[in-house]
Every structure is written in structure tokens, then in C-alpha cells.
Nucleic acid binder design. Structure first.
Length: 422
RNA sequence: GGAGAGAUGGCAGAGCGGUCUAAUGCGGCGGUCUUGAAAACCGUUGACCCAAAAGGUCCGGGGGUUCGAAUCCCUCUCUCUCCGCCA
């Protein structure tokens, strides 16, 4: 959520930057500021009347103590009439506060000035690429054929147990998942991230904190009986660890990593993109999250991009890094880099990681702050990235590494997988 | 799931209708003393709204009673103890 004071002081800039993000309902900004004006006015009225109520009530106490019952009664009348004039103000105040809050949570984060203009994924900018594209034979198979050939992922039985998009990993397929998770976690820990294993369901306040609510409500699985949401990514519980906390400046940066399954309803997505492991409702991911000093967040973003790139390089898959244009960015992000790997049999780039700086958008909701050297309260900046999401890595790895003698496992992974090939 | 107890400032913990502007201790910060440090002593020390002052709000969340609520009532959440169930 944007900081109200910033919107107040930079109205035109806010509108202009929202346009970069393809956000059209600019009238919300004007509405919001008029709610804010009214709120301030009502609050002042309320406070001054409340001050009289407080002091008069105090006098009543003193009069009672002295036994001056009649005078006390008069004062009681006075307070009663003050309070009745307070009621409509406080009613109106809570309405206006609600309207202000509703407007505020509708505004996406402002894109940083480094964000390229553009409306669709076609406008994203390729920052760099790496790895080597394999030369596959003409009869190379897409991963959804390979998983059947080697009997390592069973979508049909997954659908029988739960529904479509819930893969059942089997044998070497299951072990490959475990190996990747373990490898990614160890890699992240080696770079100074602290490992967590968070709850996979979260409450409403947590889902709100990272911006899933109210924006993406329909994308999460929801458990009505307990009012819990299945996490769409471990970013949600991880970032919320420090919700409502005031940190010490020397605690920063906080670097966290976690494995979790991720649950996404993917409502509204359809078509050929969803074949095989390209898009599923439950998948495994290892996430990295950082809470940092606001002056350092863009530096840290680059550091995290380099971290993910290094990890990807060890898997020897062909990849490219995209800087997302305004129109393709998520609601909460100020700047995002996407990582894609090239799935050679599908001849398609698949997103495997998204690394973003949220600046103070999430931490303003969560009130994660620190006291700076001058004793001033400041919001920390939050960042996160996948390191990495598994299914598309697996898809790419299966397709790109297929040989007549099976599927080659990248060297870095062999120690975890316990074999050189499938 | 049942019974009971509880939730107060960074932490511990008192307060149980008006003097709460929340005691006290610990911790933090500053100072005195010291070559320096420790100890001792002195001072200081929360967040939010408001441009700021004044003022207001915050004693787990929400609601109520009252002229007045940290304090009484209702409700929710969480924690602890005991019982039950359980991988």
C-alpha cells in the first residue's frame, strides 16, 4: 500500500507513474485525497469535543469527591449533550476512514523510474541471456511425453485423487523434486540466507500483509471452516514473520529462504500454455526474501538477480533475464526481473523465477519498520524471488537433457539425486 | 473436544471504576567518576493521527455498561495448566 503522505504531496507524479503501470482508474487518487481531507477535518472536530468531555468528566470526579452532588449533576448533563454531538461525527468518521482505506488498497505500487514503458510481455526487455541451447534430434519429445516414457509424473492419477493440475510424482520423479529442493535450499543457505519451514496455510491478516488480499482473493484456495488460505508462495508467511515489528537498523538486511508447496487456483487461465508441468495448481518452490534498508534495496535487487543467475548457471540450462515493462508487472512490485528457461522440445521460454523489489509497498501494510540513526521511524524495503520454482525447471531439464540413453542429470544435482541420469 | 487461569510499554511485572500523565525492576541511551572499562550514582527512554502546537488515540482484537474503563460485562483470537483424543 502506498504511503498516504506521499500521495498527498505528489499527486500528479503518482498519477503519472500509475499510468506507466497501465493503471487507468486515476480518479481513485482524487477520491482518496478528498476522503483524506474530510477525515482530517472530522478528526479535528472529534478531538476537540472529546477533549472537553475528558476534562469535564475529570471535574465531575472532583465534585463528587467534595460532595457537591448538584454541580456534578449539571456537569453530567453537559457531558451528555457533548457526547450526543460527538456521535454523528464519529459515525461519519468511520465511514470516511473505510472509504479511504478501500481506495488506498486498490492502488498498485508505483513502478520505479527504471521500469521500461510498455503494455504487454512483448515490451519486456531482455537484459541478458546465458547457457547453451541443446541441438535435439527431430524426434525429441516434449516433457509431457517424457514423463510417461520414464513413468515419473502421473497427471491422470493426480486428477483422480484431487483434480486436474495436481501432479503425482513417482519414483525417480519424486526423488528429483526432493533433490532439487534440497539443492536449492543448500545453495541459498550457502549465500547467507536463513532457512525456514513455514506454515502452508495463513490467516487473513497475513494474506493481506503481502498484498494477496484483497487483490488476488480468487487466486487462493480458501478454507472456510477456519478462515485460512493455502499459500500461493512462501513469500507470504516469510515476509509476515516481521509484521508489526520495529527492527533495529543493525538487524538489516534480513535474508530468509524457504521451501514450500505453492497452491494456485489459476482461475481464468487456459489454452496450450497449461500443458504438462507448464502450469499446475500445486507446485514446489524455494523462495528467497530480504528485508533491507531502503537506501540499499535496488543494490540488493541486483544482488538477488545475480544470485538466481548463478544458481541457474549451475543447472546448465539456457536462460534469459527480462526486465518487466510497466504493463506486465505485478500489483505490488516496483521493479521486477523475470527469469525464463528455454524448453527446447516445446521451443518455448518458461518463467522459472521472478525477482522483485516491493520497496515499502508490503512493509507499509505490515508496518515493518526500523529506527534510523536520527531516531526516525522508517519502513524497511522488502524483496523476494524464486530460487527456484520447480515444475518448469523439471520440464526444461527433461526436454533439454534427453538422450537415447536417458535423461542426463546436471552435475551439481547428481550428488542430491544419487545418479547421473534417469 | 472438556475444565480452569491468563494476555499491560524492548523484556519482566504492579495496578482491578476518578490522583494512570501506567508503579517498580531489567535492558537501551546520555552523563558523573575512571587512562579505559566495570561497579556505583544522576538523568533519560513507546507507538499512532495532525504541517506543527494544542489536542486526541493505543493496556490482545471487536462491542457494551458508565459522566468517567487497563480496571465491570459480552464476544473473538491467542497463550499456559489439567483431562480427553491423536501422527
Amino acid at each position: 500500500m502506498l504511503q498516504l503522505a506521499f500521495i498527498r504531496n505528489n499527486k500528479e507524479e503518482v498519477k503519472q507513474r500509475l499510468t506507466v503501470k497501465n493503471f487507468a482508474e486515476l480518479s481513485i487518487v482524487d477520491d482518496l485525497l478528498s476522503f483524506d481531507e474530510e477525515r482530517k477535518r472530522l478528526q479535528q472536530q472529534f478531538d476537540s469535543i472529546q477533549a472537553r468531555v475528558n476534562s469535564t468528566s475529570k471535574q465531575i470526579g472532583q465534585l463528587m469527591a467534595k460532595g457537591q452532588k448538584d454541580d456534578a449533576e449539571n456537569k453530567k448533563q453537559e457531558v451528555a449533550s457533548l457526547k450526543s454531538s460527538l456521535q454523528p461525527i464519529s459515525d461519519r468518521l468511520s465511514i470516511v476512514e473505510k472509504q479511504l482505506e478501500d481506495a488506498l488498497v486498490k492502488l498498485p505500487n508505483l513502478p520505479s523510474d527504471k521500469v521500461p514503458p510498455g503494455k504487454t510481455p512483448a515490451d519486456n526487455i531482455v537484459v541478458r541471456a546465458g547457457g547453451v541451447e541443446p541441438q535435439l534430434s527431430a524426434n525429441a519429445l516434449p516433457h509431457w511425453e517424457l514423463i510417461k516414457k520414464y513413468d515419473i509424473v502421473d497427471f491422470e492419477t493426480g486428477a483422480k485423487i484431487t483434480g486436474s493440475g495436481f501432479p503425482l510424482y513417482k519414483g525417480k520423479g519424486a526423488k528429483l523434486q526432493r533433490a532439487l529442493i534440497q539443492y536449492f535450499l543448500d545453495f541459498n543457505i550457502g549465500e547467507g540466507y536463513t532457512e525456514y519451514l513455514p506454515p502452508f496455510m495463513v490467516n487473513e491478516a497475513t494474506a493481506y500483509g503481502t498484498g494477496q488480499l484483497p487483490d488476488k482473493e480468487g487466486q487462493m484456495y480458501y478454507m472456510q471452516a477456519d478462515n485460512f488460505y493455502m499459500i500461493p508462495t512462501s513469500e507470504v508467511p516469510l515476509t509476515n514473520i516481521y509484521r508489526d515489528e520495529i527492527l533495529k537498523e543493525e538487524d538489516l538486511p534480513i535474508r530468509m529462504t524457504a521451501y514450500s508447496p505453492c497452491f494456485r487456483r489459476e482461475a481464468g487461465s487456459f489454452g496450450k500454455d497449461v500443458r504438462g508441468l507448464n502450469r499446475v495448481h500445486q507446485f514446489d518452490k524455494v523462495e528467497i526474501v530480504q528485508l533491507v534498508h531502503p537506501e540499499r534495496s535496488y543494490e540488493v535487487l541486483e544482488e538477488m538477480v545475480n544470485h538466481v543467475e548463478k544458481l541457474l548457471n549451475t543447472l546448465t540450462l539456457p536462460y534469459r533475464i527480462l526486465k518487466l515493462c510497466g504493463g506486465d508487472m505485478s500489483f505490488a512490485s516496483a521493479l521486477t526481473y523475470d527469469f525464463e528457461v528455454f524448453s527446447a522440445a516445446q521451443q518455448k521460454w518458461l518463467e522459472v523465477s521472478s525477482v522483485s523489489n516491493f520497496e515499502s509497498f508490503q512493509t507499509n501494510r505490515m508496518k515493518i519498520r526500523f529506527k534510523d540513526g536520527n531516531g526516525k521511524m522508517q519502513l524497511v524495503h522488502s524483496l523476494n524471488g524464486s530460487a527456484l520454482a520447480l515444475p518448469r525447471i523439471v520440464a526444461c531439464l527433461l526436454e533439454n537433457n534427453q538422450t537415447e540413453n536417458g535423461i542426463k542429470i546436471p552435475l551439481a544435482l547428481q550428488r542430491y539425486f544419487g545418479a547421473e541420469s534417469i
